[in-house]
């Protein structure tokens, strides 16, 4: 065994991590765009409360988030029961891992999108309205393209946070090989067994490569869009 040869179990953890990260980001992006826009453009009663709630997972200990998810989405939890009856079990599945990642990474995404949208000139949006564009058309043809670099940054940060998600995942969906044992969980598991140091090092290298690649790609995309 050397530093560059990955075992089947390690490949499995990598694939699972990518699946969980991509699922989490893809599913939260529409909400991220909506809440980012809402917070950037609208004044309404309870805005501060909503803002606080949306950012809460960023400061709550991940173990607590995992525990709350277990209460709500566990097999006997309110949402867990409903989804289980629909044939979509969440607890102790990769979907649960994606949910945990989504919840924990959402604030990073919203924050980045919100700031990017705040920087888009409202005057350009008004101009588009006078040219006959509905709010929705303005959103997709003016606001989103002009906020694009910030949206990409938000997506990448959320993805990276998903890849690193540990505490709420292990609390909520445990550490099941092939199902919920993502990269950080696999790395942690290797450190718990004698002789696992080399495997842990390999997984650490892979994590670094993925993180570097995501960051690099986002910089590239943002630069390409620059006006």
């Amino acid at each position: 065994m050397n530093l560059f040869e990955l075992t089947a179990a390690e490949w499995q953890a990598i694939r699972l991590s990518l699946l969980v990260g991509v699922t989490a980001v893809v599913c939260t992006l529409p909400f991220g765009l909506f809440f980012g826009w809402l917070l950037a453009r609208k004044e309404f009663f309870g805005k501060n409360l909503l803002n606080t709630l949306l950012h809460l997972p960023m400061v709550v200990p991940p173990v607590v988030t995992g525990y709350l998810l277990l209460l709500l989405f566990g097999n006997s939890g309110f949402f867990g029961k409903i989804l289980s009856n629909l044939g979509i079990p969440i607890a102790f599945t990769w979907r649960g891992a994606a949910l945990a990642s989504a919840v924990v990474s959402f604030p990073l995404m919203v924050r980045s999108i919100r700031i990017a949208m705040e920087l888009v000139d409202v005057g350009l949006e008004s101009a588009a309205r006078t040219l006959g564009a509905s709010r929705l058309k303005v959103f997709f043809t003016i606001t989103v393209p002009l906020a694009f670099p910030g949206i990409v940054a938000g997506v990448v940060m959320a993805f990276a946070r998903s890849l690193g998600e540990f505490g709420s995942t292990i609390t909520f969906v445990s550490n099941i090989p092939g199902e919920t044992r993502t990269l950080p969980l696999a790395l942690y598991s290797q450190l718990q067994v004698p002789g696992g140091e080399m495997a842990a090092a390999r997984l650490a290298v892979v994590s670094l490569i993925i993180a570097f690649g995501a960051m690099f790609a986002s910089e590239y995309l943002a630069r390409k869009r620059k006006i």
Binding site: D121, G123, L124, S126, A127, A128, T130, L131, I142, P145, L146, R225, I227
Partner: peptide, 13 residues
Amino acid sequence: VGYIFQDGRLFPH
């Protein structure tokens, strides 16, 4: 209604 603003407001992208 067509509107010409003081600052043009062309879409930069």
